[in-house]
Write a protein that binds this DNA or RNA. Structure first.
Length: 553
RNA sequence: GCCCCCGUAGCUCAGCGGACAGAGCAUUGGACUUCUAAUCCAACGGUCGCAGGUUCGAAUCCUGCCGGGGGCGCCA
């Protein structure tokens, strides 16, 4: 019996009790079932009686007793206690609990997937770094978390589009072109320009690709360094992301929106909706009507369009492509964007509470040898995604970035994450998977099969460690659904660490394969089902984070 | 000045109102003729920043303060 099944069983009990006149209350759609921290409180617990007591105008313990009496007769439930202020504590029959192992093995990688976000057309926009330099560590955080979020949404049935938006026009790009130009001529980068080894590398590569470029006029050179530089830089960015295991479905750039006339269309639309006015020669959007702190300029007094107008066109573009929800994942330094993005949606007639969500990721700090690794854009000592991967590998990098809430300023100790020891959480989890894989290989070599599903005897998995493990496995679907709903992939990582620990403890106490000339028993086979079920969940969970599940380590 | 994030064990952090607040690391002491000891067990360790409020019940929700980090542009 899964927690979800137990939940609906309790709902049925409430319905029956109201029908029988024992309770006078509206029947809830679902009730909360949780794994109690303490083993004394049974396998599962529910606070439903406490929550319904007031509406039922009865003491909580009395409500709990009414439900307990009915629930005690349900097959698979071994016992129901009323405890404390009115908790219902359930003990499941070993067979009802062990049954889960078969279910997981048969579901395979689909176990844990659900339909909580079924059909939702969601747009995830993340990283979105301009091609003026490599992906830095802040972008890396979203490359990991945004990608994991996409996997989570898909696991919950959503229709996901991963999108990368960038500017290939504008002042940043001008500065980049001038910096590459300067580097090609052995000159200092201009004020507000870009520095770092990659600028010189790109300059050299452009010169190689376009022989004779240095003999052309300054204007022609700038144009070539701009065009070729962007192309090389963007190719490098895409390579970094691909090596990192993060893929995008759609790349959108401002220039295309411009070329297709989408900025003009957006402006006309906003004008038609009467949200636009002119002041000091500039064209403004009245975002303060929708909660922004100040109105925003769409077209500057020199007739140049702002990035904000491009943002407007881009939002409209997403709306027209039929997305019901647009998620923006931004760095902490962009939190000021939230108000204007929401106002934008409202100006286009949408309800921002429904169509827009902005996730803000706090900063990432790195340390090595106990000393902080400081970034300086001016000195060109920017820590990049590639640097992180070089230092700790893709799996550890993704896991480290996904492991913490994005609300938390993240501290990454490069020495720790490069280590192949138990201090390193990703190895702790991966090791559990490799350990199971090894055990299953051994069993295959010994010619021991877990056998047909029909022959599986779930009731044999009655050891405390087995019960703990089954309980943990039963939590996975809920963890996945909750992580997607809250947009918090770190919950999956934390869950996996707990599951790995629970498995290691089981492994320590419960011998699976026969020793010496011991016979193969039904318990041996039942435990093989349990081991395979655990392997499936570990692999599935790691997969949601884009981290590999090694067969050997 | 205004806005956002954080404050939980020595350290890094979990914990979208529920039972005596958890994990890993660190420290101390144990467990390998046997399925991967890259593991496990035990001990130690807390005024959940402070003060009010809401609630049967608050680390969790609300308000105010204190401390740390980040941000405020006709920049991108």
């Amino acid at each position: 019996m899964t927690p979800a099944e137990l939940s609906s069983t309790v709902v049925s009990a409430i319905r029956d009790a109201t029908t029988a006149g024992e309770l006078d209350i509206a029947v809830p759609e679902t009730v909360t079932i949780e794994r109690p921290r303490s083993k004394e409180h049974g396998d599962y617990a529910s606070n439903v009686a406490l929550q319904m007591a007031k509406a039922a105008r009865r003491p909580p313990r009395e409500v709990a007793e009414i439900l307990a009496t009915r629930l005690r007769t349900v097959p698979g439930i071994q016992g129901v206690d009323v405890a404390g202020p009115g908790f219902l504590n359930f003990r499941l029959a070993a067979s009802a609990q062990g049954e889960l192992a078969r279910r997981i093995v048969e579901s395979g990688e689909r176990y844990g997937h659900g339909d909580a976000q079924a059909g939702l057309r969601v747009n995830l926009e993340f990283v979105s770094a301009n091609p003026t330099g490599p992906i830095h560590i802040g972008g890396a955080r979203w490359a990991a978390v945004g990608d994991a979020l996409g996997r989570l949404f898909e696991a919950c049935g959503a229709d996901v589009t991963r999108e990368y938006y960038f500017n290939d026009a504008g002042r940043q790009i001008d500065a980049f072109a001038e910096s590459v130009f300067a580097a090609a001529h052995g000159e200092e980068a201009p004020q507000d320009g870009y520095v770092g080894a990659y600028v010189s590398e790109i300059a050299a590569e452009v010169v190689q690709r376009a022989p004779g470029v240095l003999d052309k006029s300054r204007e022609e050179q700038l144009e070539i360094f701009r065009r070729e530089g962007i192309e090389l830089m963007f190719a490098a960015i895409k390579r970094s992301l691909a090596d990192f295991g993060t893929h995008f479905d759609v790349y959108v750039n401002e220039r295309d929106l411009h070329v297709r006339g989408e900025l003009d269309q957006a402006l006309e639309r906003l004008r038609a909706e009467d949200h636009v006015y002119t002041r000091d020669g500039a064209i403004w959007l009245r975002t303060t009507d929708f909660g922004d702190d100040k109105d925003r300029v769409l077209v500057k007094s020199d007739a140049a369009t702002t990035y904000f107008l491009a943002d407007a066109a881009y939002y409209l573009d997403k709306q027209l492509r039929g997305f019901e929800l647009c998620l923006y994942m931004l760095g902490a330094d962009h939190h000021g964007y939230i108000g204007r993005l929401r106002a934008l949606a409202a100006c286009f007639g949408d309800d921002p509470d429904r169509t827009i969500e902005v996730l803000i990721g706090q900063m990432v700090n790195l340390s090595s040898g106990g000393q902080p690794v400081r970034m300086s854009k001016r000195a060109g000592t920017v820590i990049t995604l590639d640097d992180l991967v070089d230092a700790v590998g893709v799996d550890a990098a993704r896991y480290a970035l996904c492991r913490a809430s994005v609300d938390q300023t993240l501290e990454i100790d490069l020495d720790l994450w490069a280590r192949r020891t138990q201090d390193n959480p990703v190895f702790y989890v991966q090791y559990a998977h490799a350990r199971i894989a090894s055990l299953l290989r051994n069993s295959a070599e010994m010619g021991i099969e877990r056998g047909l599903a029909e022959a599986f005897q779930p009731g044999l998995l009655a050891h405390d460690r087995e019960s703990d493990l089954l309980g943990a496995l039963g939590e996975f679907p809920r963890v996945v659904a909750q992580a997607a709903e809250l947009r918090e992939p770190h919950r999956v990582a934390r869950y996996l660490e707990g599951l790995a620990g629970t498995y290691h403890r089981f492994y320590d106490d419960c011998r699976v394969l026969p020793l010496g000339d011991e016979p193969v028993t039904e318990l041996t086979r039942a435990r093989l089902w349990l081991c395979e079920a655990t392997r499936v969940v570990l692999a599935g969970g790691l997969g949601l984070l884009g981290v590999s599940a090694p067969e050997r380590m």
